[in-house]
Design a protein around this nucleic acid. Structure first.
Lengths: 344, 344
DNA sequence: GGGCTGAATGACAGCGCTGTCCCTGGTGCC
DNA sequence: GGCACCAGGGACAGCGCTGTCATTCAGCCC
């Protein structure tokens, strides 16, 4: 009981270890009868194959690494935990396991990271989240070593000469478009926008959605658009710039929740009631979004599902089924809470 | 370059693979000169040992598992990410890696989890967070299999006949005591308290700290104490019960931040200005705590350090240095923000 | 009936390390 | 000089699996 090996199973089932291996790996050559006998033996012995041994002798390691680079306090990366849970569940279903690696962006030694991932761990794939998923240096190192990468919410596009790997995202343009329309449906026309980080593709896409919904290609009052960096702190001055205008907007749409919360905070300090005199909306549906006052209207991404899909990509690919898509786009959904209402 | 093995290093350094192994593992028998030669060879080849091979032949797996059981949305487990980062950093320093496993509390099959951890992964240790770290069934399964466990913020105490493993915590009593005193120093006397989950030791300790600070063993106006479960939702009715009293408290101290935020939310809805007419304080310093309006006064735990300590416990123990302590208590710190102020 | 095909299974050689045991040559000591 | 002793280093056998190739035995065709 303490440590059943494949030998034990083989003995009990009265077959060779190779046959046990075949049955357990679902390989074709095994009669139904043998299969049943082996399964039963494995079950009765409470047998679980050793990952190390499998990895050492086979070509798969059954390991997927999730590489993150920032603490909870950093730029809206609050969803890693959810992403992780989705990935773990997908891993479990496929007999895989999730490793979490962390890299400090400051003193980042991508070569060492890559070497660890490839040589030491021999992972079957890597899940990358922003901003790591857009670092050309890391990406090309991994690509050179033949590592399967899945990028969450990627910015860099694949080009003819360079494929960065699979991408997983939502339709940021549509999300922003719909949120803007939601505000317009409530009667808002003066809708301020706080931009996201200029280096992140999602930022540009969200801004485009906002612009198209509101101005439909027409002339743009630039006073309505303020720069931000996706962080709470960057949202503060942006919101202030918006709210201190003589004719201030009746709504603020921030490119993500962190900055929307900053807007809420500024409004609170300035004594502007939300949603009475100002509506505020964001994107992401952070855990905190439902807890602030008033609860924030936002766009939810199916983060858990995205994490699961990322892991599944890698598992399927390693198992030989090469997916054809280069990017998978998930559905988002508008979450209307109390921070938006028709203008007074 | 693609895959340097120990044989390559041995060839380049002109020694046997065993000597390479010795040098790389810091074993004693190796002259300084040989050591240098091997190191240089390893460096020049960009060599990293294979984890699987090491695990298969040796007694360590260099793997630590962090087992979690709830999503971000659940009971204040928002700090897993920080904990994880600390653990990962400690792992890296020791050549270890962090695996994250997830178990659904509903359909929990602890036997399968244990088998995976022990047989498949052969992890060197497990880090358990609430509520898993207090499940006697899981703990005894792991103990029976000889797994080193470190429990974060544990409730169950070790007894003579049963040792559950190491514990890591802060001094919850002191934290609550100090926070209560902070409120009293500001002039509050009518301080309401929202209790934590009755099954969690920290809840009782925090309440004791509050009671001793405020009443010093004297008679207790029970109307000031309302039940809660550490969740945002459970804090809502508790805060309401406190604030609807004819003579309502001038301050609310919740046993954690999630419930403190619920109090903030209720006060907001009832039109009670914070901190003007009501002070609110919590414990945990969740990421959201600094983002709500007004920013929450709370107690910070050194979560990252706690995670690092947990990993280090396991690494040291596996390396042979058995620590003597059964519980390590970390320092906390009062974080005074804007939600507390002297009563009007 | 002989040879052929193919499904079912086994033998065997590693994968890249670590643990154990053994060999070597220099040192100190009586 | 002889001997014990020890630091420094090598040989070798696995660890528990998977890949490759060989073997066996039915069934089948001409």
């Amino acid at each position: 009981m303490s440590k059943a090996t494949i030998y034990d199973v083989a003995r009990v089932a009265n077959v060779s270890i190779k046959t046990v291996s075949r049955v357990l790996n679902g390989e074709p050559k095994a009669s139904a009868e043998t299969r049943a006998r082996v399964m039963e033996a494995a079950r009765s012995l409470n047998y679980t194959p050793s990952l190390s041994a499998r990895a050492l002798s086979g070509s798969r390691s059954f390991l997927i690494a999730l590489v993150s680079s920032g603490g909870v306090s950093d730029n809206g990366m609050l969803y890693v935990t959810e992403l992780q849970i989705g990935a773990i569940q997908a891993c479990r279903a496929g007999g895989y396991h999730l490793l979490t690696e962390y890299i400090d962006l400051g003193a980042s030694d991508f070569t060492a990271l890559t070497e660890t991932l490839v040589s030491t761990l021999r992972v079957d794939g890597v899940i990358l989240i922003p901003p790591l998923c857009d670092d050309p240096q890391l990406l090309s190192l991994l690509a050179r070593r033949g590592v399967t990468c899945v990028r969450i919410s990627p910015t860099l596009d694949d080009s003819a000469e360079q494929k960065w790997g699979w991408g997983i995202d939502i339709d940021n343009y549509q999300a922003a478009f719909q949120m803007t329309r939601h505000l317009m449906d409530q009667g808002h026309r003066d809708i301020g926008f706080i931009q996201g980080h200029p280096k992140h593709a999602a930022a540009a896409q969200r801004e485009a959605g906002y612009r198209d919904a509101l101005f439909d290609g027409g002339p743009i009052p630039e006073r309505l658009i303020q720069p931000g960096l996706f962080t709470f702190n960057s949202g503060l001055p942006a919101a202030r710039a918006l709210l201190e205008q003589k004719r201030r907007p009746t709504a603020i749409f921030a490119a993500n929740d962190s900055m929307a919360m900053a807007a809420l905070s500024v409004a609170y300090k300035m004594g502007i009631p939300v949603p009475g005199a100002l509506s505020v909306a964001g994107i992401d549906d952070l855990p905190a979004a439902s807890v602030v006052c008033p609860p924030l209207t936002t766009v939810r991404q199916p983060v858990k599902e995205m994490g699961a899909a990322a892991a599944r990509f890698i598992i399927d690919r390693t198992a030989g089924q090469v997916g054809s898509y280069l990017k998978k786009v998930f559905d988002h959904s508008l979450v209307v809470r109390e921070s938006t209402a028709p203008p007074a």
